[in-house]
């Protein structure tokens, strides 16, 4: 476990015990990154700050559900921020249940410690370069999905391709991002955009 993650785990423990200063320390560590994500989605600073505020309050309220052995506190926080930001701008998805979304986010926050350490050393410029190196259609698919909150089926509609193709673009983009930044030895993820069975097409 790297230092950041150990510190985060300790912060989570303190927050769970009701230590508000520990939440303040978590804020000091990640508020700027959280605000960057919120602003990318909602575009307006005041509204983005409201999102960040609400996300940290959610972490405070729900910290008992977080298990540092199973996930990254930073990754969970960032997903909570993203959920709230998208909820603000995606009025056409009125059924988004933030409580459910936060809970499910816990299942998607488990980078392994080695990767987490690499992530901690990764500069924004490196990721920007990796994103810029993606084919335009793959970069667009990732941005529509992550920052605009569209599902892969919606991405497919927007970009005029089959759902399987949109999903394949997301898959290829993430695989390239990962490999570009880690020299990953991850198993090959395929080279075709459309690698889906009929039920996801």
């Amino acid at each position: 476990m790297n230092d950041d993650r150990r510190t985060d785990a300790r912060l989570a423990e303190l927050i769970r015990s009701g230590d508000s200063e520990a939440l303040g320390e978590l804020y000091d560590r990640y508020a700027a990154a959280a605000l960057a994500t919120a602003m990318r989605v909602v575009r307006a600073r005041d509204e983005a700050e409201d999102v960040v505020h609400d996300a940290f309050v959610a972490v405070w309220r729900k910290i008992d559900r977080f298990d540092a052995d199973r996930g990254s506190l930073r990754a969970w926080l960032m997903t909570v921020v993203r959920n709230r930001a998208i909820d603000r701008v995606r009025a056409r998805r009125p059924n988004m249940d933030l409580e459910v979304a936060d809970e499910r986010s816990l299942l998607r926050t488990g980078p392994n410690p080695t990767w987490e350490a690499a992530l901690g050393r990764t500069a924004a410029t490196d990721v920007q370069a990796a994103m810029a190196s993606l084919p335009q259609e793959q970069r667009q698919a990732v941005e529509l999905a992550y920052f605009e909150g569209y599902t892969y089926r919606e991405v497919a509609e927007i970009t005029g391709v089959a759902p399987g193709t949109a999903n394949g673009r997301l898959r290829l983009a993430l695989a390239k991002l990962r490999d570009a930044l880690s020299g990953s030895t991850a198993a090959p993820l395929g080279s075709s955009e459309s690698m889906f069975s009929e039920d996801t097409r």
């Binding site: 700027a32 605000l35 983005a48 924004a124 990721v127 993430l174």
Partner: peptide
């Protein structure tokens, strides 16, 4: 595959320059 994709997805917000609140 899922683990790998979760790790890669965690990179996406890192592409943004931090913004001081």
């Amino acid at each position: 595959d899922v683990r790998s994709m979760i790790e890669a997805a965690a990179l996406v917000p890192v592409s943004l320059e931090p913004v001081a609140p």
